[in-house]
Write a protein that binds this DNA or RNA. Structure first.
Lengths: 316, 316
DNA sequence: TGCCTGCATAGATATTTATCTATGCATATA
DNA sequence: TATATGCATAGATAAATATCTATGCAGGCA
């Protein structure tokens, strides 16, 4: 028997024996029979290669080597208890890390959840990835992140999704635009307008194009820009109209108006999406639980659409 | 599988895998096959209840729980390495404790060995017991000490003995005594003398009485005193004669003379005695080795009679 | 496409383990 | 001296272990 094959259990037996000063008492304490403890101690002494216990005034006393082993055993089991505590926190979602990937648009709302979450769970490291839909789909395919936030969820074959926030798409125009004064804008009114669009594949663009198709229309002229901010500024400076998430608009619409287009706003939702074939870190689940409980308080209530509970349920 | 049954070996396997970032490399390092390591890691992960490793950029990387386990494993194995170092010192006799029991007379010479020994081995705690022969025999029977120093060894059935120092017994008288002026004192000259004796059972007394018996004599009058010092002072002040170990006499015989008695000095020796049925602590053996090597330097060479090597040999 | 490299799984097996009951033996205690 | 207490040993056994060989499977590279 080699020291290598020592188990924590064996050390526990030894510690109990030293503490009680009696094999029999240790056995009782550990719910074992006395011979079992005797034998474990024998094995331990063999492994160490020195006698560990000797009869003393108050029952068994540790020898010189036994005392040192006792100290070592306490240190070692103490260290492992710490480890177990750590594990417990990890499992409880109080500690650990997870990464969440957001489509550009969602970066306007997610911080309202992530901020309070981080304050409540300071020992969780959150990595936030932000990209356009294309980039996120690639990350999703490569399983790089724990939670994804999409407006238009990808194939759900290997994933679960839950809506949590309405994401109305509105059409914006410069304040001075002719259509801005109408009570209602019809699709026909838009035929001559030039639009500023996000890149193809963007959910916002996909939804707008599908609306146009429904109206039997095609875009007359379009300008493509890769960022919501650029589009907003572009619209304000008269480059054209655009369809954007309402969350992207600043609280004070500096130079912009939302056009009262018929059938607008286009309804869409943000989803939390997790892969089923990837182990969800406890911390990530903790975040979803947090979101489920607090989304109403952290985000404007009129937008909230909390289906996270179902997702958590499906995760088991 | 429970955390209790974790072995240090398992932690080693894990550490090697984390360090190399590869199951195969770890297996090579540990002289195991790759499947063996795979399986050990699986068991470990099961025991912990969390995944510990995941594919990363540079081979396998520890997960959150894995990193913490790695830290814990390093701490724990480090602590046990310390313990092993301690054991090594213990085994080398550089550390530990032992107790040695001396008959009264030997306390005049043993410090000459124990002093230098303690200086060379400061981490060894030595307990010195001193008593008369009776007390020491009792301790010997009860196996209370590791090494005994007797002049007249007890039954050697369960013990080994080795002489290390001559212990000549001389007869002393006050300077002014009539016999002090003779060239040779014969036993007949002593018949009228009163003797101061140690308690019955004392080796000195036993040897003297056996000498008397050899001369066909009996003591005319005797005074019993329990201490060598008391006897010495008693003789100096004219209470009678005495037989004492030569080592007991002060360097300058204040008021005492050694009588040139025929057949004197009576030859006896001090012995180191160890029980065969009691494990000798490494430190005690270390002391004997020290004594064997240094007795010539630490004690007057004319008295040395070093048979310790044989004792050490018998101990194996 | 086909071939390495590296990890995981399956199946086999000798050894070790953890644990029990029964019993022996020494030392206190009545 | 008898009895109780406490430890050690023996023998038995189900379970777990440590380890192997053989094989499957995925990702990277020519």
């Amino acid at each position: 028997m080699n020291l290598r094959h020592l188990t924590f259990r064996l050390l526990e037996v030894f510690v109990a024996t030293v503490r009680t000063g009696s094999v029999t008492a240790a056995a009782r304490q550990l719910h074992l029979t006395q011979p079992t403890v005797s034998q474990q101690l024998k094995r331990l002494a063999e492994a160490v290669g020195e006698p560990l216990l000797q009869p003393g005034v108050a029952g068994l006393e540790p020898t010189e080597a036994g005392s040192e082993l006792y100290r070592a055993a306490l240190d070692v089991t103490g260290r492992f208890d710490d480890f177990q505590d750590y594990l417990a926190e990890l499992r409880g979602g109080q500690r650990g890390r997870f990464s969440i990937a957001l489509v550009n648009t969602a970066q306007y709302v997610l911080p309202c959840l992530l901020g309070p979450y981080s304050r409540d769970f300071p020992d969780v490291d959150v990595t936030v990835q932000i990209g356009n839909r294309q980039q996120l789909l690639s990350r999703f395919e490569r399983q790089l992140d724990d939670i994804y936030v999409f407006s238009h969820p990808p194939s759900l074959e290997h994933a679960l999704a839950a809506r949590f926030l309405r994401n109305p798409l509105v059409m914006i125009a410069p304040e001075s635009h002719a259509l801005a004064s109408l009570d209602e804008v019809r699709s026909a009114d838009l035929s001559a307008e030039r639009f500023l669009l996000r890149e193809p594949g963007s959910a916002t663009r996909m939804l707008f194009e599908s609306w146009l198709q429904g109206q039997g229309m095609q875009l007359s002229g379009a300008l493509q820009m890769a960022s919501n901010e650029a589009i907003r500024v572009g619209v304000a400076s008269g480059m054209g109209l655009a369809v954007l998430s309402q969350h992207v608009l600043p609280a004070v619409h500096s130079g912009l108006v939302v056009l009262p287009v018929r059938e607008f706003p286009i309804d869409s939702h943000w989803h939390f999406i997790v892969r089923r074939d990837r182990r969800l870190p406890h911390a990530a689940r903790g975040f979803l639980q947090f979101a489920c409980a607090r989304v109403e308080h952290c985000l404007p209530e009129e937008f909230v659409c909390n289906e996270i509970a179902g997702l958590l349920e499906s995760l088991g």
